[in-house]
Design a protein around this nucleic acid. Structure first.
Lengths: 185, 185
DNA sequence: AAAATATATCTCGACGTCAAGATTCACGGT
DNA sequence: ACCGTGAATCTTGACGTCGAGATATATTTT
């Protein structure tokens, strides 16, 4: 492979902010432009990077959480409850919208967390169809520990960017996520 | 809920680029600052948005692809081969690094795509351990159709941003993905 | 008050993924 | 030629997710 040539071409076409590195999406886009010069594949520059980065983050998180004996899905549920504030309880339906999973999945997750003693299920006093899921003290501690570990890891990943760049990036991403989060989705 | 109050506070704290909308991550970060004022949760502003946006994109893509009778995982494999150029063939190992799945998963995917007649498995003439996966003509057509559909959908999502903003966003994301893509990962 | 519709949660079977191990073959050193 | 190490792919069993449907209770309509 002519890595060096590719990098040269890259820096001529599109000078990067500082001195940037090529990534897989650069290679992917270059391949499409070669194979399908009739198409405008610019959207991939943004959205393929989002998907691939998310995949990498999933793997990194799995590693970080395993040091605290938690799976990513467990972290998602426990921290949703933790964020709700005392008495740390939410309905399964509220948990659905926060974690973007289906109802069958959430039932299953609650079952397993309850078996591990990290949450407990209580009847909803105001709606007999409903249930409230409450964090146990141990569940709360585990969530807090894992959060600290996650933040440390994420800070390391974000060290690539300046403070201002992180702010810009957050703002741009918000513009893309807001329609999904506010309209039905 | 005091939606209106929250929005006011938001615009005072952190004026958005133009007039932006709140998203789920804004709510998530606000909740953490309330529950854990001792922690700096700024990293979540970026990386939680990446993960959530990826989840939304997965759902949107599933919908777009279903119009062409493809699953997202099928698209990933077929387009990897399509991008390779004629004769549209790669080893399973090369497909692994492009799609970020494990070898067992890839074996399974190739099996199912072969059963559907979209790819075929050939022995690698230069390495008897190896296999080459080749796109069939039908597989190639399906990949091209689905790509066009995907690009249309992604353009709609990205209409939220100006041309310049899309460029900025791509550049910032590249800085985060490059370490994963270049170092072992 | 009864009927129709909507909501909250759970059940269940199919499916895709992963991780670890097994197999088969390649390659360098001796 | 032989041996050991590493590489490429496949096999297997456990696991988590999804989606459709079932059940029970709320809410709205007539």
């Amino acid at each position: 492979m002519s890595e060096i040539l590719d990098l040269k071409r890259l820096h001529v076409d599109r000078p990067l902010t500082l001195i940037g590195m090529e990534d897989e999406v650069d290679r992917l886009v270059a391949a499409w432009r070669r194979e399908r010069p009739d198409l405008d594949v610019e959207p991939l520059e943004v959205l393929s990077r989002v998907s691939r980065l998310a995949r990498h983050l999933d793997r990194a998180r799995r590693l970080a959480f395993s040091e605290h004996g938690l799976e990513p899905w467990e972290f998602d549920v426990l921290t949703s409850l933790r964020r709700a504030g005392a008495p740390y309880q939410l309905s399964p339906g509220q948990l659905l919208t926060q974690t973007l999973v289906t109802s069958g999945t959430m039932t299953n997750r609650i079952d397993r967390l309850a078996k591990k003693g990290l949450v407990e299920r209580l009847p909803d006093p105001s709606d007999r169809r409903g249930v409230l899921v409450r964090l146990t003290p141990e569940g709360r501690d585990r969530a807090d520990e894992a959060l600290a570990g996650l933040l440390a890891q994420e800070r390391a990943i974000l060290a690539q960017l300046s403070q201002a760049q992180r702010g810009d990036l957050a703002g741009l991403l918000r513009q893309l996520t807001a329609p999904f989060d506010n309209i039905p989705g």
